[in-house]
Nucleic acid binder design. Structure first.
Lengths: 245, 245
DNA sequence: GTAATAGTGTCTATCAGACACTATTCA
DNA sequence: TGAATAGTGTCTGATAGACACTATTAC
């Protein structure tokens, strides 16, 4: 899709410093929202209600509202809240995808954020240019079936990022609700990694990075020994181990 | 800088699916180009020859040329070649910075790439909207003196990314020329980390990740025992250690 | 008491790093 | 031979992980 001839582009280029009339790419913010449910790791997808790719599934996203969003992260948080009702989850920029062909409307950018949420906290919403939203299980490096735009590639990048951080960081804690036990935290790691961990070694590792604290007097009770409930010490500090969990 | 009233924006929003006439942010591609010289780790800066921030120093960058650049990385490579003459160095997307205020011309995005190059390979060039280019030493988390836009923050992110990868990956090899000795590679790590490494342990680590190979028959000669020269096995495969180097 | 899970202690095989050693060139 | 750096071997203190143990609740 060639909007300008080279000569025309050069002319505009010469003006860029005064008025910046250089042709601008389209920019959207898209989210890979992950949750760990009974079915395993899942991602939230939205069915598109408008062209292009009408009826196809895609990562939920939207345009930047230049008069409303202070910055990129604010735009991502707005989209997240619009789709899930969640206000303050873990949100991390994954990267940008941009080329001439990913969107038939022209040269476009997608700024991708990854969100980790607890399924308990979500209220799915839809509207705007999406007709439906649904959780879809992660299989291998993506989901079953095609996605709109280059969202399959974007999702793969986000999954890779998530998996690599599971091995080396405290990031998975954001998939749990506010209060959780050490056994629950260990299970999150085990399910994401697909292997079992030694309880003693796991607790040693968690203790030495010191990112959670017991909630005084609060216990998870069942028909066995009660378990201490923990919470994050500081919500936004992801700690990295110097080796595998 | 409010270009549209809320009502106006909503009207345009309604059209987005047919013609995407939603207001678009400005997008630039900026580079943090690192090299390890006699003076230490340095970054290439360009002095701006046009408003805004005329005369200030900035990361070299440019606009996306929608009729010329196939994708974001192509745009970054074009800018890199324009400034340094280098064709195929290590290039990695660091992230996007975007908000309403970083550029006085309006809501803008900067897609940042980090490049690692060998100082031997560079031929500095300037022209276009930059008057001069210069290598500036990295001090702590940035350079001495202010930078245009939010480039100081962007540079800080790139430096952090580089430092974290030095500890855990084979990435520093890209700061060396095509052929290098193991002692030279170790020195690169030592200078970047600011601490000395044990030769035996270092070589064990390098050997086990298997990313370089000896160049048959080629040796670095001086007035001592000659050293085997090595090269990267596959240029674009950065290997990660499962612990600190 | 039993069942079930929480939480802790100990022992060992492994290995990263310290250090010393040998190798190979030039002058 | 001496100087200088390349390259290798060995030993040990630290520790990750295996495994067994104790603790505390419901019933």
């Amino acid at each position: 899709m060639k909007l300008y001839t080279k000569a025309k582009r050069r002319y505009i280029y010469g003006m860029e410093n005064s008025e910046n009339s250089y042709p601008r790419p389209i920019v959207s913010v898209d989210l890979a929202i992950f949750a760990l449910t009974a079915a395993g790791l899942e991602v939230l997808l939205a069915q598109r209600g408008a062209r292009p790719f009408e009826g196809d599934w895609a990562l939920p996203g939207g345009w930047i509202h230049v008069d409303e969003d202070d910055d990129l992260e604010a735009a991502a948080r707005r989209v997240l809240n619009l789709k899930t009702g969640i206000v303050a989850p873990y949100l991390e920029q994954v990267g940008v995808s941009g080329d001439a062909k990913r969107d038939p409307r022209g040269w476009s950018l997608s700024v991708t954020y990854m969100a980790l949420i607890s399924p308990d906290d979500v209220t799915l919403r839809h509207g705007g240019n999406m007709t439906e939203a649904a959780w879809r299980p992660i299989i291998a490096d993506g989901v079953d079936g095609p996605l709109a735009f280059d969202h399959a590639a974007i999702l793969k990048t986000a999954i890779t990022r998530l998996r690599s951080k599971v091995e080396y960081s405290t990031l998975p804690v954001h998939l749990l609700p506010h209060a959780f036990t050490l056994s629950e935290l260990q299970m999150v790691y085990e399910r994401l990694l697909g292997r079992s961990l030694d309880k003693s070694a796991f607790r040693k590792r968690i203790a030495e990075v010191d990112f959670i604290e017991p909630i005084e007097g609060e216990m998870r009770r069942a028909s066995n020994r009660p378990a201490q409930l923990y919470r994050l010490k500081q919500v936004h500090a992801t700690v990295f181990f110097d080796r595998t969990i």
